[in-house]
Design a protein around this nucleic acid. Structure first.
Lengths: 268, 268
DNA sequence: TTTCGTTGTTCCAAATAATGGAACTTGGTT
DNA sequence: AACCAAGTTCCATTATTTGGAACAACGAAA
């Protein structure tokens, strides 16, 4: 029974580790660089890289002697994105919301107890597909994070909360499971979450979970502003609009991803 | 040594196979369904699915007993897309070109001797991110495919050509290595490729390879039309514009993905 | 040209993990 | 209650992975 590593899962786990590592660089990277930071011995890392390259998950550039993400991963990327991210479904809704409220809008999902931003609208700029989307952030001190945690089934919620780092970013950050639990309870009652400068000073937001009609949590949606431009009160005034958008996204997502469930609703 | 399977590479290869299979469904899928079409025995498939689920590459929905792509894959997806696809870099250029020529524009890359469409503009509709992008197609009978093959280094080209199926889609399809070789030679001389209804009757296109200044082939760009709307002659008139766009994409891509090479250009 | 140093690649016996047929459990149906 | 299908676990066998160390390739310095 594995002790140290969080990863495990034999060879496949290791290979995926390496894949993550290479992808994490964001640009072509040399063997030696990877080796430095790798927990795996030279020969092992070497073979893992070879395997992944064979499989087209990585691409090896012989000229520069570098590894980068491969085309097969790009192909998978498209599939995974359309299937498991709310982004394609929510796209039009985000456009509309952002145009209406004229503030930054984020769409997030939960990735292993962390927040994964899958889409974003900047209010100022026009549509920029993959700008900040794809970034990850902490769950316990962001609006979307708390909104999602709050509406997770108990078992999963407790597992997720145990994985939070509770690093104190600002004076407002909740830094204990107890404090966060109380906050989540309040969020459940209210139906939406605030970020009161808990992650970054001067940045506040209101966040709404995206829930299916059988209370399954799909993600969260938020409107963000700086304290110079807006107050929590003003943000709260946007709550109904935010809620409507979240509901619309939930409906579309449900129709799109669980088309079979329509039968249950229609039939019987 | 491996004889039958194209995949190979031990457990990792198998796991990635399964990942592809699940991703290929495009929606949540049950174990039994996967088993039916799988080459792997029950227990093996089962364990592979478990591993991938543990790793968050797949997500298991206990309620519906289905597997779907997981959040970790989505995160990787984003990374791979921004890193290895030309789409983010080419985005603005595609917008401009499509607005100017008012025809369908495709951006493609080579994925294991096949064409992978990484972005598309429909001329009629506005920007629709992931519409048809992500699809794959044959290389030997499409404009972008031939343009890319033509400018591949010999060794790689021969390897890629050996992998073509040479299925005859229309009367115009090139159906042998010899015929295709001659065509590629002509493309190299001309600098761009045509699709003369080789893949689909009534569909023609002009395609331009995207090449870095040291002749490295990054992808291809095409303008497509139906024979009812446009002739090859008319498409050819757009060649300079197409070439300019391709060159611009190449420059941006080079700056973005190989920033270190700038030193070589500046220094010395 | 030779030597050294760095970086990448290969070997192989030992250690470990994957395999898959079959048995078993679970939940629903006749 | 008996049956059936879908999913899960077992375990001895088999095949793969492991990683220290030796080896090649290349370039830079002597």
């Amino acid at each position: 029974m594995g002790r140290g590593t969080v990863t495990g899962d034999g060879t496949v786990g290791k290979a995926l580790d390496v894949l993550d590592q290479v992808a994490g660089y964001g640009r072509p990277v040399r063997f030696a660089t990877l080796l430095e930071e790798s927990v795996y011995p030279k020969a092992t890392l070497y073979r893992l890289l070879q395997t992944l390259t064979n499989q087209n998950m990585l691409a090896y550039d012989a000229e520069h002697q570098t590894y980068a993400t491969g085309m097969r991963l790009v192909r998978l990327a498209h599939r995974a994105w359309t299937q498991s991210s709310l982004a394609p479904v929510a796209r039009a809704h985000l456009d509309r919301l952002s145009a209406a409220v004229r503030h930054t809008v984020h769409l997030a999902q939960l990735d292993n107890a962390q927040v994964l931003y899958v889409d974003k609208r900047n209010a100022a700029q026009p549509v920029e597909m993959f700008s900040d989307a794809g970034k990850v952030g902490p769950a316990y001190c962001t609006g979307v994070g708390k909104a999602m945690l709050a509406f997770l089934p108990v078992a999963e919620r407790e597992k997720a909360m145990a994985q939070q780092s509770f690093h104190r970013f600002t004076a407002q950050t909740y830094t204990s499971t107890a404090a966060l639990s109380a906050e989540l309870e309040a969020i459940r009652e209210r139906g939406y979450a605030f970020d009161r400068e808990e992650h970054e000073p001067g940045i506040i937001c209101i966040a709404q979970p995206i829930l299916t009609d059988n209370a399954r949590m799909l993600g969260a949606l938020s409107i963000t502003g700086s304290t110079q431009d807006i107050t929590l009160k003003e943000l709260e005034r946007l709550a109904p609009q935010l809620a409507r958008t979240a509901a619309a996204i939930a409906m579309d997502a449900q129709d799109w991803r669980f088309p079979d469930m329509k039968l249950q609703r229609t039939g019987t």
